[in-house]
Amino acid sequence: MTQGGEAAQHARDEGDDGDDAPATLPELYAAHRLGLVRLALLLVDDLETAQDVVQDAFAGLHARSRRLLPDPDRALAYLRVSVVNASRSALRRRRTARGYVPPHEPPGDSPEARAVLAEEHREVLDAVRALAPRQREVLVLRYWSGLDEAGIAETLGISRGAVKSTASRALDAVEKALEAKR
């Protein structure tokens, strides 16, 4: 063995690869965490987000540690790329959140408006209850169950024409009953 080969063998035996690069994840974390947080902080301008980005990068490295940790340069390069990409994603999420405009919510009804609406609903239900059974069935299947004319005809065993005429007469009767109450 040559003298250079003996020195390299001794360095491997001692666990020293000659460039003092961290060999384990905790060593890599201790050596580079602050620098990576500074990098992320410059990109996202928020310490908490920067710390989260770096933590996620180290978690990703841990998941790939078999491939990347034997080569500390690759591991550090992976961390830098992860921090930059995660910072970009954080900025995109932030920009999307700031640009979001919630849909317009109409103001809540006043108690008086709800009482009037409830009274109108009761009047309509009373008018529907006063209909002939076939008329009531057609309206309930149409407006409560959402069936079309063919579905109502099939359900009740009548023709589509009978459904149309029955629905028309039923709606006229409900309208007249409501007008009579006013």
Rank of each mutant, 00 (worst) to 15 (best):
L117T: 13
D126I: 01
E48G: 15
A77K: 13
R80C: 05
L69E: 05
E154A: 15
G35S: 08
V81H: 06
L41T: 00
G161E: 04
R114F: 03
E149T: 13
V138W: 02
A30T: 10
A40T: 06
Q3H: 11
Y100W: 13
I152P: 01
L131C: 00
K164N: 08
E6A: 14
V37A: 10
L178A: 07
A86V: 09
D13H: 14
Q55K: 08
R122Y: 02
A113R: 10
L171P: 02
R98D: 10
R182M: 04
P72V: 03
T2W: 09
R92E: 11
A170D: 00
P107R: 13
S82Y: 05
L139D: 00
L147M: 05
D45Q: 09
L61P: 09
D45A: 05
T155I: 03
Q9W: 11
A170G: 00
V174W: 03
A86H: 11
R64T: 11
D71C: 09
E112W: 03
D126L: 08
W144Q: 07
S159Y: 00
L68K: 10
R142Q: 06
A113K: 06
D71P: 09
V53Q: 07
V84F: 14
D13P: 02
R33A: 11
G4P: 08
K176Q: 15
P70M: 02
R114Q: 08
G157E: 03
L125M: 10
P103T: 10
V37Q: 07
G5Y: 14
G108M: 13
R74D: 04
P103A: 14
R114M: 06
Y29N: 06
S87I: 12
E6V: 06
A11V: 05
V163H: 00
Q51S: 10
D73V: 11
H32V: 10
Y78S: 04
A8D: 12
P106K: 12
R38G: 03
D46V: 00
V37D: 02
P26C: 07
L61N: 09
P107A: 12
A8V: 11
A77W: 08
L36I: 05
E123A: 13
V101W: 03
L69F: 09
E105D: 11
L42M: 12
S145K: 15
E112T: 04
V174K: 01
E119C: 01
D148C: 04
G5M: 15
D56Y: 11
R169D: 00
V53F: 04
E27C: 04
L147Q: 08
S82Q: 14
D52I: 07
R74L: 10
R94I: 15
S145Q: 13
A167F: 01
A23Y: 04
Y78P: 05
S159D: 05
V101K: 13
